[in-house]
Amino acid sequence: MRLTGVLRILALVFTLVAAWLFASSYINHTSMKSISLRSWLGSEAPKPQNKCNNKEACPSHSFAFRLISGAANVVGPSMCFENIMFMSSVKNNIGRGLNIALVNGTTGQLLKTSSFDMYSGDIKDLLEFLKAISKGSLVLIASYDDPATKMNDEARKLISELGSNYAAKLGFRDNWIFVGGKGLKNKSPFEQYLKNDKETNKYDGWPEVLEMEGCIPKKMD
Rank of each mutant, 00 (worst) to 15 (best):
G97R: 00
S89P: 04
F116Y: 14
V6T: 08
G76H: 03
T149Y: 08
D145Y: 01
N99D: 07
R8V: 10
S25A: 13
D125C: 01
L7M: 13
A148H: 08
M85L: 08
L98R: 03
F81W: 12
R38F: 07
C58V: 11
L194A: 15
S62D: 04
L98S: 04
T107I: 06
L110R: 06
I123Y: 10
L126C: 07
K150F: 00
L127D: 08
N53H: 12
K198F: 10
V209L: 10
M1V: 10
N104S: 07
C215P: 08
C58I: 09
L194R: 10
S36Q: 09
L210I: 04
N83G: 06
Y166G: 00
Q192V: 06
L102D: 00
E56Y: 15
F172Y: 14
S62E: 09
K91Y: 07
K55I: 07
M85F: 06
L126S: 07
I123S: 13
K91A: 08
W206H: 11
S143L: 07
K218W: 09
F65H: 06
E154T: 14
S160G: 15
L111E: 12
E44P: 00
A148M: 06
I177R: 02
S69N: 04
K124N: 15
K202Y: 09
G121W: 09
P147L: 06
S62F: 02
H29W: 01
H61V: 05
S31M: 10
L194C: 01
V103S: 00
P207S: 05
I133S: 02
F81P: 01
K157A: 13
K33G: 07
L111S: 04
L138P: 01
L126K: 03
I141H: 01
E191I: 03
N50V: 06
G97Q: 03
A45F: 05
D117L: 08
A148G: 15
S34G: 05
S89V: 01
L126H: 02
Y166S: 11
Q109N: 12
G42A: 09
C58R: 09
S137P: 05
D125V: 11
S39H: 10
L162A: 11
V139N: 04
G105M: 05
K55F: 05
S43Y: 12
S31R: 14
G183Y: 02
Y26I: 06
S69Q: 04
A132Q: 13
R66P: 00
G205A: 04
N50R: 08
K185H: 11
V179I: 12
K91L: 15
P217E: 11
I9C: 02
K47G: 04
K150G: 00
N50Q: 11
N50D: 09
F129P: 02
E213F: 07
T4V: 15
